[in-house]
């Protein structure tokens, strides 16, 4: 009997050459984390703290923000950085706790698929968004839509 139990994380084949993706993942978590602190606390301040807080949020509020390229870039960066940061964190947990290799594989594919779908969906939403959709109730739209 060995003195120290083998770690529960299953051993996978040793990497020989090529790009060290685990290293870049490690760097990504720290680099994206620092940027996300600025982006998310800014987002929380504007949407939850300033003005009337969460009660001010409606279609007109979001439409007003996303009519400005500044917020399109802000929200787009937040979407990509946060979702990849979260997905990579979940990958770490699955690698740590999913002992059964088949379960592990299914979970990792699930994470990758949901991440791809949500990044594509979110990017399409903020890039094709129309703050003044034709035929919508004018009372629900941002005030600048009246000028159109």
């Amino acid at each position: 009997m060995s003195l120290i139990e083998a770690p529960r994380t299953p051993t996978r084949g040793r990497r020989t050459g090529g790009i060290n993706w685990e290293k870049w993942g490690w760097i990504y978590m720290r680099a994206s984390g620092v940027v996300l602190i600025v982006l998310i606390f800014g987002h929380l301040f504007v949407n939850l703290v300033a003005g009337e807080g969460v009660k001010a949020i409606d279609f007109a509020f979001v439409g007003g923000k996303l009519a400005d390229p500044f917020w399109i870039v802000w929200d787009g960066l937040m979407l990509w950085l946060a979702l990849l940061h979260g997905a990579n964190g979940m990958r770490t947990l699955v690698n740590d706790y999913a002992i059964n290799p088949k379960v592990r594989k299914v979970l990792l594919i699930g994470i990758a698929a949901s991440t791809a779908i949500l990044i594509i969906l979110g990017t399409l939403v903020i890039t094709t968004f129309d703050p003044c959709p034709a035929g919508a109730n004018p009372a629900l739209l941002p005030s600048f839509c009246e000028a159109l």
Binding site: G63, L121, G122, V125, A136
Partner: peptide
């Protein structure tokens, strides 16, 4: 992300 995507559905 899903709830915000509803801005693309309707107000």
């Amino acid at each position: 992300i899903l709830d915000t995507a509803l801005v693309r559905v309707s107000p």
